[in-house]
Nucleic acid binder design. Structure first.
Lengths: 159, 159
DNA sequence: CTCTCTAATGAAAGAATCTTCCGAAGGTAC
DNA sequence: GTACCTTCGGAAGATTCTTTCATTAGAGAG
């Protein structure tokens, strides 16, 4: 065998497939095969394995937020009342149910969590902030950073 | 005509197509047509228009960062020396060239910019922080928030 | 070195899909 | 009513997908 089990290293061809699919997830298998330099059959097998083994978690269309009433981006730092595992778990369970949360990360530093939120506009955010965010379990305070300009958003991974 | 020009409103079918492609960007046209409830020909025409007119900015495979040596996520707040347009422009031009920057947003609040960065590990970040981040033009100070747990990352837009 | 075994490869072919053309249906202005 | 415009679904040739199969390359044992 080539590797132990989980950390199966990617060879040059697998890496090329991942890079191309990250760049354009709708590439046909035959086009992908040409770009990668293998036959369509081999490319098909490789790609299917990369999906099956979890290297690719999904393929998603990148919809322009402005076109679907989600033009406003907001970053929010959250501090909880208590730093107990139960408190964290309750917060995380609740926040997973909010559809406007794009990112939620537990961080080390002045905040407990960092949120990335997309809404229609500032008025929409203020409404959601008052009715949903500060109502989350255990929230002591929040600090809001309105995004005035999206310089880079969701860049692809360089590897 | 139905709408003025830019703000062309999406009808129910367009919205369904966008939602399905955001969920699974590799859906075949025939499967997509079944899910949306139109003929393959109509679905093809609609989808092609949504891409052509910019509703869909791209389709990207979501690669598991742990599989490609990008398991560490870091949020960084940046304050610049001066708040001049030239200073902002220089910073933005420089940061667009750094491949490990996933997000970079100009914000209102205690920081000028918020960054989202993916690297291999903390040691990797410390090296890049010292050699690349604080060397960016006009950077007065940075505040680093290591992500200890990714609760939600890159959720799809709910609309 | 040679043999064997395993895993991966590319050619091939039937099945499925894509892409475009065409006539029809529905709505609107006059 | 009539002409016009847009969007629709069916149809069909071109293309692609997906699997099968024989072959090749490489590792390990003797």
């Amino acid at each position: 065998m080539k590797e132990s089990s989980e950390g199966t290293q990617l060879d040059r061809i697998d890496s090329k497939i991942l890079r191309q699919l990250q760049r354009d997830g709708r590439l046909s298998n035959s086009d992908l095969a040409k770009l990668v330099g293998v036959s369509p059959a081999t490319c098909h097998r490789r790609t299917e394995r990369l999906f099956r083994e979890g290297y690719v978690r999904g393929v998603h269309a990148d919809i322009d937020p402005k076109c679907i009433e989600r033009g406003a981006l907001v970053m929010v730092g959250v501090v909880l009342d208590r730093s107990t595992p139960e408190s964290f778990a309750a917060f995380e369970t609740a926040i997973r149910k909010l559809p406007f949360i794009l990112d939620c990360h537990l961080v080390a530093g002045d905040f407990d969590y960092f949120l990335k939120i997309r809404v229609r506009d500032m008025a929409d955010f203020n409404r959601l902030h008052g009715s949903q965010l500060i109502a989350l379990p255990g929230v002591r305070q929040t600090r809001t950073f309105f995004v005035m300009k999206e310089v880079v958003d969701g860049a692809i991974l360089d590897f």
